[in-house]
């Protein structure tokens, strides 16, 4: 009996004893990327763009790294195995680069100014990075402050609604009336009422996150198995203990659903607020680029925005996986 024990296996990757020394998929991907480099460097451009040689160099470096990884991935253990999984994607991305390069820069099938070539994007990043970088920071700041305020307020409101009948009496009708209204509908009033466009936008982002977090936290708290409370009460738990140590942890999976929905809502409000009010951030950058018909800049900003939103979502997933490690069978992002 005393020898019993458990080990919790890490989900997903099953470590294998020895990986084959040579990674053929990596060699293929490396070859494709080197090919893309040669294709870019030696075929003449149909349209007028700079930075072609830099793009070729970048592709060559990536190809070289892939080849290197293919030869040495056996040495990296776990990380090497993860890299191997990405092999097919690396190859397809290399092919996509060749196709894109062909359609834009090399043949001109997709004409300027509406379509950007790979080197066109690279040019934007190399030349306009200070402005783009500042826009990212401004967007991030606005998003994170607004989202943090909204999520916190929503969490508190949700717990209060689920816990206290008196609070529910007053907050519930307000929630029902105001909650479903899209946060963007407040835009004109917000910019008029708040002293600065920054604070108005923070408010709007917070509002967008607040509603789903409130509703789902609330439903999470209400849905807690009554027996959990009975158990804690027979063991001498106080009201505070019931809220903090029973209701909230039990509701946490639902809270995270609300946090995800709130994050999505705050992304869209962020872009609109930046386009219409703040004159800074990625939303503003997009509009500014459109105004100057700088479509390359627009695509570049879109890519950055996608990375930012995806990164934040990943961060949220990671924190959920940490906090809710006790759950089984959850979606992996």
């Amino acid at each position: 009996m005393s020898a019993s024990g458990i080990t919790v296996a890490a989900p997903g990757v099953t470590p294998r004893a020895s990986a084959p020394a040579l990674w053929l998929g990596g060699l293929l991907a490396g070859g494709i990327w080197l090919g893309a480099a040669a294709f870019t460097a030696w075929l003449p451009d149909e349209i007028e763009v700079g930075r072609t040689q830099e793009l070729a160099l970048l592709a060559a470096v990536l190809g070289g790294l892939a080849v290197l990884a293919a030869l040495t991935s056996g040495l990296f253990g776990e990380a090497g195995l993860k890299l191997r999984k990405a092999g097919p994607w690396l190859s397809v991305l290399g092919l996509a680069l060749i196709g894109w390069e062909w359609l834009t820069a090399k043949s001109g099938t997709l004409p300027l100014p509406f379509f950007a070539s790979p080197q066109g994007l690279l040019e934007v990043y190399l030349e306009d990075w200070p402005r783009l970088g500042e826009s990212v920071l401004r967007s991030l700041w606005l998003l994170l402050t607004g989202y943090a305020i909204g999520a916190f307020a929503g969490f508190v409101a949700g717990v209060a609604l689920g816990w206290s009948k008196a609070i529910g009496y007053w907050v519930h009708p307000v929630l029902r009336l105001i909650g479903p209204l899209p946060a963007t509908a407040w835009l004109p009033i917000a910019f008029f009422v708040f002293p600065t466009s920054g604070s108005a936008s923070t408010f709007l982002v917070a509002l967008a996150a607040w509603f789903p977090v409130t509703v789902l936290t609330w439903s999470g708290v209400v849905g807690v198995n009554r027996n959990y409370y009975d158990i804690a009460r027979t063991l001498g738990a106080s009201q505070t203990f019931l809220v903090l140590k029973v209701a909230i942890p039990a509701a946490l999976p639902q809270v995270f659903v609300g946090l995800f929905m709130g994050l999505g809502a705050s992304f869209s409000v962020l872009v609109v607020a930046e386009m219409l009010g703040v004159k800074a951030g990625l939303g503003w950058y997009l509009q500014w680029a459109q105004g100057w018909a700088a479509y390359g800049n627009m695509y570049a900003a879109l890519v950055v925005m996608a990375l930012m939103c995806s990164g934040l979502t990943t961060l949220l997933f990671k924190s959920r996986d940490r906090l809710l490690a006790w759950q089984k069978g959850t979606v992996r992002w």
Binding site: A232, G236, A237, V246
Partner: peptide, 24 residues
């Protein structure tokens, strides 16, 4: 009371579940 259904807290380990009363 030991309930008919164990109703352990799924977010707590065995150790933390058993510690519930002392913690409370």
């Amino acid at each position: 009371l030991v309930f008919q259904d164990p109703t352990l807290y799924p977010w707590r380990t065995v150790q933390a579940n058993v510690a519930l009363g002392l913690e409370a």
